[in-house]
Amino acid sequence: MSELDQLVEGAIALDKWPLARLVRLFEDTRPGAVAEKAAAIAALEAHGAAPRAMVAGFTGTPGSGKSTLVGQLAARLAAREAAAAVAVLAIDPSSHRSGGSILGDRTRVHFPVGERRLFFRSQPSDRELGGMGRATYPVVRLLERLFDYVFVETVGIGQSEVEIERLADRVYLVLQPLGGDQVQFMKAGIMEVPHAFILNKCDVGAAARRSYHALRASIDFARPGEAAPPPIFRTSAISGEGLDDVLDDLAAHRSVRDAAGRQAR
């Protein structure tokens, strides 16, 4: 058995070391790695690992609590679906001066030790704009063959960074209370992209209620002509409020994943 076949078999079994080795291969942007990636995909297909994951994108402003929220959602999803495996790919900003990244998202995500069905990977943005890194899509091509759900957490973004819509089957825009007024919520750009909104940190009380009603009142102006407004989930990663509602939404839309459509995008 070749070394590649051993890595592929270990990754399919969700062993962390072989999985990390394959992820590192798909993060390699050197021209010489192209043939190795193609060989890995062929080996995965030979072992029956076809694309199956629903890819959910979580994007939003810095400080909205995306990392903690995504970590809690992944852990709860694995707990409520005994056969489900979940991968989290978190993109951290790279310095435009040094090129380095802190990769600090992993400090906010805590998975049970030894749980094979949960996998976390930090990835630098490599100074790419749009919220994702240049290696994000290749790594998702790998992870979607090994997991049932892939959560992609973007860099903290602004109003015009909408690249996640080209990758994810379902996009969630994570906002925080007092993050803007009705005029802010009506502006074009990122408000036009998500399939659903998440107002996080709703444990703050009155401020969260005011932001919720401002967002609710603004959606028709930001997205005119839509037959049904996108849902708004009120969540708190601290209290657990609303997390099961987001998981219900994920489960309800898992059947509409479209790998061919994502490849075209």
Rank of each mutant, 00 (worst) to 15 (best):
L4C: 03
A11M: 03
I12S: 03
I12Q: 08
A13M: 09
A13G: 05
D15T: 08
K16Y: 00
K16W: 01
L22I: 08
F26K: 01
E36T: 02
E36D: 13
K37P: 04
K37S: 10
A40H: 07
E45A: 13
A46S: 15
G48M: 08
A49Q: 07
A50G: 07
A50V: 14
P51I: 08
R52S: 12
G57Q: 01
F58I: 06
F58Q: 04
G60N: 12
G63H: 09
S67C: 11
V70W: 02
L77V: 00
A78W: 01
L89V: 09
L89E: 02
I91E: 00
D92M: 07
P93E: 04
S94E: 07
R97I: 13
G99M: 09
G99D: 05
G100Q: 14
L103A: 14
G104K: 15
D105Y: 09
R106I: 14
T107H: 12
H110D: 13
H110F: 11
P112N: 08
R117T: 03
R117E: 02
F119W: 13
F119E: 05
S125G: 14
S125L: 03
L129W: 04
G130E: 00
V139M: 01
R141T: 11
V152T: 02
I157P: 04
S160N: 12
V162I: 13
E165H: 11
E165F: 08
V174N: 09
V174A: 12
P177L: 05
P177D: 04
D181P: 02
D181Y: 04
Q184A: 15
K187W: 02
I190E: 03
M191V: 10
E192P: 04
E192G: 01
V193A: 02
V193Q: 00
F197V: 01
I198K: 01
N200Y: 07
V204E: 12
L215I: 12
R216A: 15
A217L: 08
I219E: 05
E226Y: 06
A228T: 13
P229T: 07
P230W: 09
P231C: 10
P231L: 01
F233L: 02
I238S: 13
G240K: 02
G240C: 06
G240R: 03
E241M: 14
G242K: 00
L243H: 06
D244F: 05
V246R: 01
V246E: 04
D249R: 09
A252L: 11
H253D: 04
R254V: 04
R254S: 06
S255V: 06
V256F: 11
R257K: 15
Q263F: 11
